[in-house]
């Protein structure tokens, strides 16, 4: 893109510093809100991912199921649902012993009543309540299987939490986008009015809408870039403060940060092009 337009944008930025700074701080406020939410989302997603990794399904086996049958079942599970680990009756009793820890209670139980089982770590695509329920139903159809357990209630809660986070992300994203469009539209209107004489002269000289609008679009991009950097700096400060009080609070990964900057710039570009299309029609014939 021609350097001329960047020079014009910078000239306007300098000529109307008050307006430019007001725009930067207004946008920074909206973007900081989005960035804070991103930070929360990122850390929540990390926590949910950690919990999600621990989602597993326990398939209790019939006492009659022989070694060959169990191996055949494991192969089918591996093909359809995920990786499985065999836990024999003796291993299950040992784990139970370790968990209970009180020999008197164990003596009262007498013989080992625990069945052998398969611990199934599901494929990522199946780690939601609906899929897990369906898997459980299917697994219960196998003759070697006595029962299937997967902690449906907390899986449901986890799914609801994920869905809620996604909905909130969309709502916050929309709110911030609307705020940005509103701020940019009004700023650009003021910027065009402040340079009305120049715009009118350009139009009389035969400047296309693109020629007139491009410096304003670049100015909006410069202001948005400054606002994004301010917002990220604020959120970095917040993360540093939180990290001293809470373990594991991390800043946004580079991919998220770059996406945030890129998204804000794309939005600013779209909003300013749309706004200028309307505004320029009111200036000059």
């Amino acid at each position: 893109m021609h350097l001329f337009f960047w020079r014009e944008a910078w000239r306007s930025f300098q000529a109307h510093r008050g307006l430019a700074l007001t725009t930067v701080f207004s946008l920074a406020a909206a973007l900081a809100l989005a960035a804070v939410f991103l930070l929360v989302s990122w850390n929540a997603s990390q926590a949910l991912h950690w919990i999600g990794d621990r989602r597993e399904m326990i398939v209790y086996l019939n006492d009659e199921a022989g070694e060959t049958q169990v191996q055949s079942l494991q192969a089918k599970i591996g093909e359809l649902y995920g990786t499985s680990t065999y836990v024999s009756r003796a291993q299950a009793w040992e784990e139970f012993n370790t968990q209970v820890g009180d020999p008197e209670i164990l003596k009262a139980v007498g013989t080992n009543p625990l069945p052998a089982s398969l611990r199934v770590r599901l494929k990522p695509a199946l780690q939601n309540f609906a899929a897990m329920s369906e898997c459980a139903k299917q697994l219960e159809q196998f003759p070697e299987v006595e029962a299937v357990r997967f902690g449906g209630e907390w899986v449901q809660r986890l799914d609801a939490l994920n869905a809620g986070a996604r909905r909130t992300a969309i709502a916050v994203g929309l709110l911030v986008a609307l705020a940005m469009v509103f701020v940019l539209h009004n700023t650009l209107r003021l910027a065009v009015l402040a340079r009305r004489q120049q715009v009118e002269v350009m139009i009389k000289l035969g400047a296309s809408d693109g020629f007139v609008a491009t410096p304003f679009v670049f100015e909006a991009l410069l202001e948005t870039l400054a606002a994004v950097l301010v917002a990220l700096a604020l959120v970095f400060g917040l993360q540093q403060a939180l990290a001293q009080r809470l373990d594991g609070v991390t800043f946004l990964p580079i991919e998220w940060t770059l996406s945030f900057v890129g998204g804000a710039l794309v939005l600013a570009w779209l909003a300013s092009v749309a706004a200028l299309g309307r505004i320029l029609r009111t200036v000059g014939a």
């Binding site: 002269v201 139009i203 009389k204 000289l205 035969g206 400047a207 296309s208 809408d209 029609r281």
Partner: peptide
């Protein structure tokens, strides 16, 4: 608007108040 701009680029205009 595009054709108007094109037309104006082929015409030179001088105003009483210069429009500089």
């Amino acid at each position: 608007r595009a054709h108007r701009a094109l037309l104006r680029r082929t015409i030179g205009v001088i105003y009483e108040d210069f429009r500089l």
